[in-house]
Simulated assay, not measured.
Amino acid sequence: MSNEYRCNAARDAVATQFAQLEIPLRWTDTASPRPIDEPIKPTDRATMIRPIDPEIPRAGLEGADVRWWMVPYFHKGDVRSWKMMSTNAPLETVDTSPTFREAYKRRRALIPTTSFIEYAEPPGWKKGRPKTRHEITWPGGEIRYFAGLWDQSSPSDMADGLTSFCFITGPGCPDLAPIHDRTPAILTLEQGLAWLDLDGAGKAAFSEPAPAGAYTVTVSPREQIMSAAMRRALP
């Protein structure tokens, strides 16, 4: 499971990737004022890209900042009453779980990322103390994409409704085995476009774990972990 990530890339850089493949991408809102280096956490708004027509994703895409922590279409209570941790969708049950199966069939998306973050308990760790941060990147450092799902719900406390997303997590991989037994599906742009194809391989494309060497792990000892606000306050 991954519940923190970064996208240290401006929208123009994301759009350039699609333009190189002659795939139109339009933005339906203005970019968030969030500092570009600030980690994205559950319930934050973050960039999601989806097909304008799900049947022909390469014909055109649209992007916007929406809530990370998917609330499914059938939820009618207020947002806080949706208690299920649905930031990640397990690969094994994404096509059968009531929370995710309709989104898997019809509402796929791409979530731009430049790294994701996992935490672990260092030796001697005690409850209430910071955990060790592991920031995971990939060779080349280019923008990649989580295999995302999105949904539109009508919470009782949101008159305009709510668009929200999650992304797929699958088997662990050798590079991350000491940290976690799950790994998000991290895609190149071409792999991402294949994910958007509703007639394509779908979740079967992620059934095998990433090979050794696919990721680089940077460890931040707990005494070095600072919030974005703390970093910005440094002289």
Rank of each mutant, 00 (worst) to 15 (best):
D95T: 09
P221W: 04
P24G: 13
A15S: 11
W150S: 03
F167D: 01
L187T: 13
G60R: 05
R231K: 12
A233G: 07
P39C: 10
A13S: 14
K83V: 02
F167W: 11
A159E: 07
A228S: 14
P171V: 00
D151R: 01
L21E: 10
L176R: 03
R26M: 00
T47V: 14
N3P: 00
S164L: 07
A120V: 10
A228Y: 08
A19Q: 12
G140M: 03
M70T: 08
I49L: 15
L91E: 05
S97P: 07
A109K: 00
I52P: 09
S220L: 13
T28H: 02
F167I: 03
P98F: 08
S81C: 06
F100W: 15
L162P: 03
W68K: 04
G148I: 13
G60Y: 03
E118Q: 11
E4D: 06
T43D: 06
S32K: 00
S220G: 00
S164G: 10
P184T: 09
G172N: 04
S153D: 02
T99C: 13
R231H: 10
A120E: 13
F18L: 14
S153A: 14
T43H: 05
G192P: 05
A233E: 08
E190L: 13
A147D: 01
K126R: 15
V219P: 02
P39D: 09
W138H: 11
A120M: 11
T137I: 06
A228Q: 12
C166Q: 00
E118I: 04
P235W: 04
A13N: 07
D65N: 11
